[in-house]
Design a protein around this nucleic acid. Sequence first.
DNA 1: CGGCATCCTAAACGATACTG
DNA 2: CAGTATCGTTTAGGATGCCG
Lengths: 122, 122
Amino acid sequence: MSSFDRPGDVFLADCPARLAVEVIADKWAVVTVYALGRGPRRHGELKALIGGISSKMLTQTLRRLQHHGLIQRHAFAEVPPRVEYSLTALGETLLEPVTMLSRWAEANADAVLEAQDRMGIS
Amino acid sequence: MSSFDRPGDVFLADCPARLAVEVIADKWAVVTVYALGRGPRRHGELKALIGGISSKMLTQTLRRLQHHGLIQRHAFAEVPPRVEYSLTALGETLLEPVTMLSRWAEANADAVLEAQDRMGIS
DNA sequence: CGGCATCCTAAACGATACTG
DNA sequence: CAGTATCGTTTAGGATGCCG
């Protein structure tokens, strides 16, 4: 089914792709996947790395990503406890488009900012 | 500044790219940009095309995208009134990563669904 | 037809405190 | 350290109705 360049609908209407959109249309989910792109990270590391996210949101995001099969949780039976998160094979595939997005963001952040104060602020 | 492959931070912390993330980390914004990818569309057309979105949300999303410089609004002085929306040059550049995302979604939607009922539902 | 205004409900999110 | 639980505030978002 490669109908994604015809006037039909992909990611529009109720196709299964729409569900996957819900995965990535989440600020923290995207950054988290991106942050895990360079290897396994612990809860605290992610929190520091991402910046601005609360423990609660991070855990919630991690659970959701795990639930979607994008990341793995690995808890070590140690004292003090250590828990590491890493991308699954599926999660790795998401890394590509997300990286493209980050490149876009990097390249066009100033253009967006410029557009913003050309319009809105008044 | 192409530091996006070093352990530093892109899209992490408070870099300008983070702002651009806010643009795309919006369910309706992404689909709307995608829907406008094939050419100018009217409010009603978009509403029907996207499916599941309310008039209010659509207008709100369009305003936000316009405010970010991604789309243009063109109102014709006719009766009954006609308003068309189209991507700006900046908006067109976003189309690429968004299309990649849609391809990913298409390709991996079932994998996500599978992961979901392998875990969560119990 | 496009879209703003209003109301109202549900969900997101942050802060804090507490457990293994 | 990792995580849960609870609370309170903010925001998202649907429904309806009115105006250009």
